[in-house]
């Protein structure tokens, strides 16, 4: 029992160290990589443009549901005018960064893990290394840099769309004055809320993309063996672990910032 706990602890520490070195190496080696900007733009397209529809759809429905639920709860206390406050703070402080990150993990993160996993299985990563090309700089760094730009943007889009969804619920469907809703939003959201939101978005972006890239990059180490099963296992692990990390990191950041 003690031996097993010790072994697992050592494995965890080793994996965390390996993950940190993997991420640092990607940024460090990116400095000498040619045509990095072009690959960053391609990655921004993958994480940004391709994921935008899902961000918009989830944002709208999150706002709609929050508006609906919030209105009925506030109505019991005669405080419907605070609906804008409830929706905006819920979305900007928590739901926006967390749900946007989870959606990005589901779409862009899984695709990244699967793509790198296939590149590992088909020896494309080995081919890069034998050419003297840093696979960390060529394949991983552009994704990480793109995530630092795209995640905050996607989160901002999610928050705006979500607050608009809340107003649709509150004003169009339930009869609240539009001016009341938006003035409550304006009063409630302050600069430190936006800073918290963006801090979370950047942190989630870095952690989840690095985690998905790490899992795909090391698909050959998978206990599922090699080939399609290894790619499938590494992709699943990437999505599950990234989702857990988003929620855990959210708690840690919130506990420091609140």
């Amino acid at each position: 029992m003690v031996r097993s706990v010790g072994r697992h602890t050592l494995t965890l520490v080793h994996t965390l160290g390996d993950f940190a070195l993997f991420t640092i190496r990607a940024f460090h080696e990116a400095a000498g990589s040619r045509k990095l900007a072009r690959r960053v733009v391609c990655s921004m397209f993958e994480q940004g443009v391709r994921c935008l529809p899902v961000i918009v759809i989830v944002g709208v429905f999150t706002g709609l549901v929050l508006g609906l639920q919030g209105y009925h709860v506030l109505n019991k206390f005669g405080s419907e005018s605070l609906l804008g406050t409830l929706v905006s703070l819920s979305i900007v402080r928590e739901l926006g960064p967390v749900l946007a990150a989870l959606m990005l993990v589901g779409q862009a993160g899984s695709a990244l893990a699967a793509e790198l996993g296939m590149q590992r299985q088909t020896e494309q990563i080995a081919a890069l290394e034998t050419m003297g090309v840093s696979s960390h700089a060529y394949l991983v760094a552009p994704r990480l840099i793109a995530a630092l730009i795209v995640y905050p943007l996607q989160t901002a889009v999610f928050c705006c769309i979500g607050m608009w969804g809340g107003s649709v619920s509150g004003t169009m469907l339930l009869g609240l004055e539009s001016g009341v809703y938006w003035s409550a939003v304006e009063r409630a959201v302050e600069a430190h809320d936006v800073r918290e939101c963006m801090t979370k978005a950047v942190t989630f972006g870095l952690l989840t993309v690095a985690l998905c890239a790490y899992q795909g990059f090391h698909a050959h180490r998978s206990s599922a063996g090699s080939g399609a099963r290894a790619v499938s296992a590494s992709t699943t692990r990437a999505v599950v672990m990234s989702s857990i990390v988003v929620l855990a990191a959210d708690y840690v950041i919130t506990s420091f910032l609140v």
């Binding site: 990589s33 040619r34 088909t122 020896e123 494309q124 080995a126 081919a127 034998t130 050419m131 090309v133």
Partner: peptide, 24 residues
């Protein structure tokens, strides 16, 4: 090295594949 499965990059054209080692 010429790998068993060729290890070509699917998302790059033939010209881009060949140019890759020179470019990097």
């Amino acid at each position: 090295v010429l790998f068993q499965g060729n290890a070509l990059f699917d998302s790059l054209t033939a010209l881009e594949n060949v140019a890759l080692p020179l470019e990097q």
